[in-house]
Amino acid sequence: MKMPTDNYFTNALRPASLHRAEHQIALERCVGKVRKTLPLMGVRNPKIGIDNLKWSYCAPGDWVISFMSGQLWLALQLTGDPVFLNAARARRPAFRDILRNRRSQNHDLGFQFSLSCVADWRMTGAKEAHDMALDAARGLVTRYCPRGRYIQAWNALASQDSTRAKFVAGRMIADTMQNLALLYWAWNETGNADFRDAADGHAETTAQYLIRQDDTSFHTFLFDVVTGEPIRGETHQGFAHDSCWSRGQAWMIHGFAQSARTTGNNVYLDLAKRLARKAEALMGDDDVPVWDFSVSDSNAPRDSSAAAIMAAGIYIIADLSDNEESSRWKSQADRLIGGLLRSCDISGNPESEGLLAHGAAHVTAGYSDTMLPYGDYYFMEALMRSLGHTDFFW
């Protein structure tokens, strides 16, 4: 395995943020927090924060199960310390279980396996991790609906009532743009165009139906299950069907930017830029976005996870842009990181088990102002990107 040098924290691979020193200190603090909490977690994976800045943990197969793994692989990349390798590898059985239980799999296979098995393969060359990631990609591609050209998001399970089954049928969601990375990886590994075609098809359908003409976004879009004909845009975690859920906008900024980086398709880059410009305009003077941009209440919950995802995606845009434009994008991403550092960063709090406060998981269901493992992962990714690192697992 290629281990980083002892002074890896100071070896930026691309031009770094103007706030380099502050961001480097914050990143080192995050790595220290991840190291400190490992004995508390064992092989458990955080799901959402509870009282006193502690974690509750994932049930088997939870969509957020890989974000702790992602942090561990980033920490290993930064330090070379095998304690992070061992902790990440110890989680592999949880991902084997997901592959065994096909009925529980959904569009989140990309999240689950990019940050676990693809990461393992890229960092260590472990064949089992490679094979598991390919198996997951095969499962994800089977969810592609050719008539509508989208990846079906959720499953209608036998244990659910008919209302839920009707809700999930024929539905795509903004989050899936981030999951396409697993399909592009599988295409690059195998040369099998089915993976690329499904990813491109879903991305193009996302651009056509989830992005409105004013560059705001729907969270979900519904299609006729039989014909694939488009029906309407809706929300699931946002404020209203015609509102703009900030984390959905962030998922697509990062997803299109990463897809552009992987494929070289500048159409995807232009879409990421449009979405990012709109998010900046909707934020106004805020440094951390409100959970839904259509909510005008100044006391409404903020979403630190949306800020972290957005920042990481905008740093990708900056890397794919030239000169003055790149600097402009870095400034926007730096602003988001600055907001997180000022008002959400709890990595230095000895009582906290996570990195960021004020995450909004699902506000209308009562889950806001909390720690979120995906917010923590993207915070580390964004800080690394701000320092010039470009080698990630997407």
Rank of each mutant, 00 (worst) to 15 (best):
M1E: 08
M3F: 09
N7M: 05
F9I: 08
F9Y: 15
T10H: 13
T10D: 15
N11S: 10
L13H: 12
A16H: 04
S17K: 06
S17M: 06
L18P: 00
L18W: 00
A21H: 07
E22T: 15
E28R: 14
C30W: 06
C30D: 04
V31T: 05
G32Q: 12
V34I: 14
R44M: 11
D51F: 09
N52M: 01
P60L: 02
F67A: 03
G70R: 01
W73Q: 02
L74S: 02
L74Q: 14
L78M: 15
L78Q: 13
P82F: 00
R92D: 14
P93C: 02
F95W: 07
N101R: 13
R102D: 13
R102F: 11
R103S: 13
S104T: 11
S104V: 02
N106V: 02
D108G: 04
F113Y: 15
F113W: 07
L115M: 14
M123E: 11
G125H: 13
G125A: 07
E128H: 07
D131I: 12
D131P: 09
L134S: 06
A136D: 09
A137K: 05
V141C: 02
C145Y: 05
G148K: 03
R149W: 05
I151S: 06
Q152C: 04
D161L: 03
D161G: 15
S162R: 13
S162H: 06
V168H: 02
G170W: 03
A181H: 10
W185G: 01
D194E: 13
F195R: 05
D197L: 07
A199T: 14
G201A: 12
T205W: 05
T206F: 07
Q208V: 08
Y209N: 05
Y209M: 07
Y209Q: 09
I211Q: 04
Q213D: 15
S217P: 09
F218I: 02
D224L: 14
D224G: 12
P230V: 08
I231C: 03
R232D: 05
H236K: 09
F239H: 14
D242L: 10
W245Y: 12
A250K: 09
W251P: 07
A257V: 11
Q258C: 08
R261F: 11
G264K: 14
Y268E: 01
L269D: 00
D270S: 14
A272F: 12
A272N: 08
K273F: 08
R274K: 14
L275N: 04
L275D: 03
R277Y: 13
D287G: 03
V295I: 11
N299R: 13
P301K: 09
A306E: 13
A307P: 03
A308P: 13
A312D: 10
I317D: 02
D319Y: 06
S321M: 08
D322W: 07
W329V: 03
W329L: 02
S331C: 09
A333K: 08
L336A: 07
L336N: 07
G338K: 10
G339L: 01
R342M: 09
C344I: 05
I346F: 03
S347H: 06
E353F: 12
G354L: 10
A357R: 06
A357Q: 10
A357E: 12
A361S: 06
A361F: 10
G366Y: 00
Y367V: 10
Y367F: 12
S368H: 13
D369V: 00
M371Y: 12
P373W: 00
Y374P: 00
Y378W: 11
F379Y: 15
M380Y: 02
A382S: 15
L383I: 14
H389Q: 14
D391L: 12
